[in-house]
Every structure is written in C-alpha cells, then in structure tokens.
Nucleic acid binder design. Sequence first.
DNA 1: GGTCAAATTTACCGATCGGTACATAATTAA
DNA 2: TTAATTATGTACCGATCGGTAAATTTGACC
Lengths: 201, 201
Amino acid sequence: MASGRKLTFDKHQALEAAMYVFWKKGYGGASLAELTHRMGINKPSLYATFGNKEALFVQATDYYAEVIGAKHNAFLTQKDTPLSMRLKLFLTSIIKGQCDKNNPKGCYISLCAAETESEDIPQAAQQKILEVSELTYKALVTLFKEDVEAQHYKLDTQAQHHACFLMATIHGTAAMARAGKSQKALMPVVDHAIEGLGLAL
Amino acid sequence: MASGRKLTFDKHQALEAAMYVFWKKGYGGASLAELTHRMGINKPSLYATFGNKEALFVQATDYYAEVIGAKHNAFLTQKDTPLSMRLKLFLTSIIKGQCDKNNPKGCYISLCAAETESEDIPQAAQQKILEVSELTYKALVTLFKEDVEAQHYKLDTQAQHHACFLMATIHGTAAMARAGKSQKALMPVVDHAIEGLGLAL
DNA sequence: GGTCAAATTTACCGATCGGTACATAATTAA
DNA sequence: TTAATTATGTACCGATCGGTAAATTTGACC
C-alpha cells in the first residue's frame, strides 16, 4: 500500500499544461520557471513526479501525439467517405488546429523538430520528436498503399512521394500559422495540395 | 578623418559568421559566447561594431535576404525559360540550399519566424523577420499577376492563393530538411507542387 | 615624438538557467 | 500516539545568459 502525503495536483492536468508550454516555446525556450508556473506546481514536485525537464518533455510529446495528432489522423480512415474528402477533412482539421487562437500557433512537432539541428536538445527528447513526427508520415504511406481508392488512382506506386508532399504541406502551413497567417488565408493550400496529388474535388 | 586603432577583423566576414549562427540556432538559441567565437571577436568589439544582439540579428537577417534569398528569387524571372521550368528551378534551388551540408539545415527565415509566437524575441528582430519573409511571397504574387505565361494559364486570378501554396511548400521542405530529410527525399515535392498549380512539366 | 581617438583584452555585473538540499507538512501503518 | 513515508515550500547551488566598466594596446595626425 502507498503511504505518505498525497499529490495536491492532477498529474494529467499538469502534463497537459506542460505540453502547451513546450508547444509555445519549444524545448529550449521553455524555462522551468514558466513550466512550474503554468503547471501550478514547484520544482521539487516536478522533479519528483516527472523526473527532469527532458523526461517531462518526452511525456508531454507522447501526450500531444495521443491527444492532438491522433485526432487529425482519424479522418484518414473515416468510413463511407471518398479519399479526396478524407484528405480534405484531414488537412482542414490540421490547419484549424494550427490557427486556433486557443492553442499556441503552429505545430508542436514541427517546432521542436526544428531544434534538432540546433544541437542544444538532449538525445532522448530528440529521439522522441523524430519518432512522433514519423507517425503521420507512416499513416499516409499506409493509406496510399492500401486504400482501394488510392490504388484506383495509382497513388500506391509512389506512396512515399505523395506522403512526403503532404507532410511538407502540413509543416508548411504550420510554419505560416506560427508566423501569424490566419486559417482563412491558409485554406486555399488544401485544395492545391489535393490537386497536387492528381485528385479532383 | 577617422583616427584611432583599426578594426582587426573584416566586418562583412564577421556578419556572415553571425548569420550562420542565427541560421543554425535561431535568435534565442544563439548565445553571445557562440556568436563571438564564430565571428572571431570578443563581446566589446561586437557591441561597438554592431550595437547589441538584436541589432546584429537585424543586420544578419538583411544579409541573408540579400545574399541567399535573392539568389533563389532570381530564377523566377530568368529570361527565355517557360514558367513551369522557372518554378522548378526556383524550388529546386531552395531545396538544395535547405539540404546543403555546408549550411545549417533548413531555412533561416522559417526558423526565426517560428520564434515570433514564443514572445521571447525583441520587437525589432521580429519585425525584420516578418518583413524579409514577405519578400519571396510578394515576388511570387507579382509573378503570377504580371507574367504573360501565368496569365495564359489563368494563374493571375488567384495569385495570392497560388503564392501562399508555394510559400507553404517552401516552409514545409525547410522544416523537413531541418529534421534531417535529404535533398533526394524532398525533390518529389517539387513536381507535386507544380502540378498543384495546374501546370504540367 | 607626443597626443588623442578608437579597438582591444580582461574582468566583472545582475538576472536567469536547470537542478537540488533541507526542513516542514500531510498521510498511512503500527 | 508514534514511526515511517511521501509531498511541499524555501532557499540555495554552479553555470550561463546578455551586457558593460576600466585599463591597455594600436594607429593617425600634428
């Protein structure tokens, strides 16, 4: 049985708060002062519960992938929906999230992946970011290879190329959303991207 | 006449070195220690010559726009070249630069623009980044509106949409290059993007 | 050669960085 | 009630952050 004083905060709630801080500031830009403030706890509690900044980042990144990323990817396999419409819903959902004024602008993964090249991010954090950034790519490759409609349009032959193109589109709108572009301004990108695949709407 | 001791370093050379540091680390991630080390000078010399970190960043960003950015944009107006080919040369040149192993991976502007949302970047630096990031966008809008071939393909009617789509493509490949994707892996994006505009190769 | 102006080096400033030692408060088991 | 266990608040650690004061070189002009 566990004895001793109980936690005075909700662990998931604190992790979510940490996720929003990393989403806004990246790994290096997120200070322990801001993290503890937004999480509503102090440093010793953070270290006792989550380990250290690096371990907290890994857990926050997993949380992001499970809660935010998976929500968008679900559109790719929505039943009774044409492929072009599934892709449109998928891209629109992503852009909406990137421009939502209730969230930090842009994409958590895209932002933190940029810190890879800076070399001032710990190994485990870097590996987790690369791992999570592959999830959507792999989902797209699988879609283009195995979806019957995709096969009909011959998108299965160069599935990696098509997935790479859509990933570039997603990362691109993320960068522009972070720089201040509105959802309305970015929506035309969706139709162009789908046309770039050779699919009509 | 200016009297007194002469500078022991080349001002342009030092500015170029600073540009590469910001390109690799962003504004917040670039420390004065690394800047002075790579520039080959010490802090008082930096402050006497360039002002402070913020002023140095503004000058380095202008330098990037003039030297790197302008080089890519030149392909857009190359004489005796079909529009689709000019766009292909333009995009290829950009991706090559983003993946060049002699440079920091990705795009200087795209990286530093991401720091805008972080709020830990001074006003003047933020404004300069936004200003420079509009240069390519405006060049593309002008191209689609005024180029006779673009008009023939009816690209002048929604020039902003098409320019926005290409900007997203550029920022997207920048993010992926920074995360480690090779030039070879990103090249398929070029053809998809041009097809997204409704142009054949 | 002497004088003044400008650039260099060295050393330091207060603030903040990630991380922790320590004492205190709260909870359960005995 | 007491002992053992766990969480909390405070106060601190060495390192690094951007920025600067002061003393020392170097050079151009008279």
